[in-house]
Design a protein around this nucleic acid. Structure first.
Lengths: 391, 391
DNA sequence: TTGTACGCGTTATCAC
DNA sequence: GTGATAACGCGTACAA
């Protein structure tokens, strides 16, 4: 370890490390009983000799006594090379435990075979599941996936995009943070020709390919089902008004009322930031203001689950007094009691679709035109809205 | 799009793409009504010209009329360079929207500032939360994190390790798949000097740093609490017998009985593969075989939650007839009714610790010695085991 | 203080 | 069929 001296007593043998604070190494001097931090300096750290010099094609070439180009070509079964030399090369490569250096390959090839995915939050099942879909397709064709979370912050979303770009990802798959409402970080790179695909939360104005969940129809199906179950005063707990998904899911909700020959009461439309606190506060306010409400449709499953828990605490029977439905098919919905009616947006399939569109795009090359796909989902009726058999 | 001809009619204008199958592009000929796939050939794809030639330090150097080295040094505030030229360089760099090429940097620096994390499954909260902890520390010091899922398969775990290595990750943070019981893929790279840190599911024999959850103590606390609540015949639903966590959590369970002056009944110890089906089957068998069982302690929260749902379906009252506890503090446990008693292993903290140990290790360089840290957690008592106030 | 020149590991374009 | 050699973009020891 590089010797660090105490900032007070300037001794170094009394120093111990004590964790990291915001990117700085924290130290503690036992003698002075004093804590201090210093900026980590990865520059000056001498690289571990051990890991250096993994075998390269040069080594292989030397061993056999051929040129590097021969080795290079032999390893990728180039037709020029005789079967004989190919075999020799491959065998030596195996013996020396040769691993191609992806970095160097990327540098010459001018592509990294890596795609960057930006999602708001990896801990929510919804996004994790999309991710898995993306990874399954990507790894099948030998592409790597880099993941980063924006944690719903515009700033880190921008930073993440930047990181990906400087790392030469071949493409960018992005689901914007709730905060994001300017898109210069996307436009800029779009202009530079980097394939970008937006999914779920998209910015419609941007000329990128898009993969959408069937927000309108999903929301429509949920609402129609509830109406069919005899619910009349259905409040919708939506997200921020500006958000794409909010608008779309609201649209489906309104459509269902129209189809039923009635119209939704604007007083029952609630915009929230979808945090638990905000949602429950709105629910309470609504119930206080309007005793006729007989159902809540929350745009997010976790929100809906929280509503169920909350209503139960208040002694309200679900679905007899009040029905609840969600959106997203979160596994929790199947576990809570009563189990939650929800719309299954097929997130895994969505992920697969996003990845496929990316590969479509890079295969097309410059003559690709942006397109939008919609992933179909399906309604899952469970107890939280089930009052009677559907007509 | 590269023109593809139908394998039957050999026309190309009737061909449309129709998705990917296992890494191969699938096509459909409208005329022949015929599907076929071909191997994607990313080699021959001409790189999009647009993205090429982002500005390099060479460009900057030319514009100002200095050498590349001056630019290189100016950009990283090297003390050699005069303030004046630094400013000029930086300004031009900004104007030309210069982004350093991380690949080239990594190549010369012989380090990528990327760490690879391998987890079994990103969709379970437990791992996702560890990941977030890792990322928070890593990004604070400017490191990127690559994530891959083994999906509980030894084979893909090995493949993932391999991918990371060829991509020159600076370190490997790994939580093994359930299947994994040979560790050559780790040993090999350990010998090559790549920093490896195992967490949660570790192989003790390997000489790597390790971060452990407090399995023994956590399990002990849970069991002790249950005993204190008057449960006497507590069955433990464990994972595969070979698994590290199984052994440790079992140890804590046994210890609690010993401390209480009794001993656990071996007949109540169940090894499962922790799938829902296996767990419920075991629960049923146990209940049938032994009517005295009054509690289940499942090693995983999701399993425990499933047990609760299952018992409720059977009309068994929890915790009055049978108590249930889990391990992991999965959010679902707080939502189900009765809410689930569990041990909170501080997964986020665990992730942070893993990352910190990695940075410790690379700072130490070659004179680093492996160490093992244990992350403390805390018992969360909820309704599923709560019969009376603790003594 | 700044510039020259080489190395990093691989691929590709020539020539032989 | 095989071998030199020049990129790829950047860092840096050494020279000026």
């Amino acid at each position: 370890m590089p010797r660090v001296k105490c900032k007070k007593c300037h001794k170094d043998e009394t120093i111990i490390r004590s964790g990291f604070i915001r990117g700085r190494q924290r130290f503690f001097c036992k003698e002075c009983d004093y804590y201090f931090t210093i900026q980590l300096d990865f520059q000056k750290r001498k690289p571990s000799r051990l890991k250096d010099h993994s075998t390269t094609i040069i080594d292989i070439a030397k061993v056999i006594g051929v040129s590097v180009s021969t080795v290079s070509r032999a390893l990728k079964d180039h037709s020029d090379i005789s079967l004989e030399t190919k075999n020799v090369v491959k065998q030596v490569a195996a013996e020396l435990n040769y691993q191609p250096n992806t970095l160097a390959q990327s540098l010459t090839r001018r592509e990294t075979r890596t795609i960057g995915v930006i999602i708001p939050d990896i801990e929510t099942y919804f996004f994790a599941s999309i991710l898995t879909g993306i990874q399954s397709i990507a790894s099948a064709v030998g592409y790597k996936v880099m993941i980063s979370q924006s944690r719903e912050s515009h700033e880190t979303e921008v930073a993440n995009v930047h990181t990906f770009i400087t790392n030469w990802v071949d493409g960018l798959l992005i689901c914007h943070s709730k905060e994001t409402n300017t898109f210069d970080h996307i436009k800029l790179n779009l202009k530079r020709g980097i394939p970008i695909i937006q999914f779920d939360r998209v910015c419609e104005e941007l000329n990128t390919s898009k993969v959408l969940l069937d927000d309108v129809d999903g929301s429509f199906q949920v609402t129609e089902h509830m109406i069919g179950q005899g619910f009349k005063r259905i409040a919708i707990i939506a997200g921020p008004e500006r958000l794409y998904v909010t608008r779309k899911r609201l649209e489906g909700y309104l459509k269902a009322f129209r189809k039923a020959g009635t119209s939704a009461d604007p007083a029952l439309i609630c915009y929230t930031d979808l945090t638990k606190e905000a949602i429950l506060k709105q629910v309470d306010e609504l119930l206080e203001r309007d005793r006729t409400i007989d159902a809540f449709f929350c745009i997010s499953d976790i929100g809906a689950v929280n509503i169920i828990v909350h209503l139960k605490k208040k002694g309200i029977r679900i679905p007899h007094e009040i029905g609840v439905a969600g959106f997203g098919n979160d596994p929790t919905g199947d576990i809570i009691e009563p189990s939650l009616t929800s719309f299954n947006p097929q997130t895994y399939k969505c992920g697969e679709t996003v990845a496929q569109m990316f590969f479509d795009q890079i295969l097309d090359g410059d003559d690709h035109v942006a397109q939008t796909k919609m992933v179909k989902g399906n309604l899952i009726v469970r107890s939280s809205t089930f009052r009677r058999p559907e007509p």
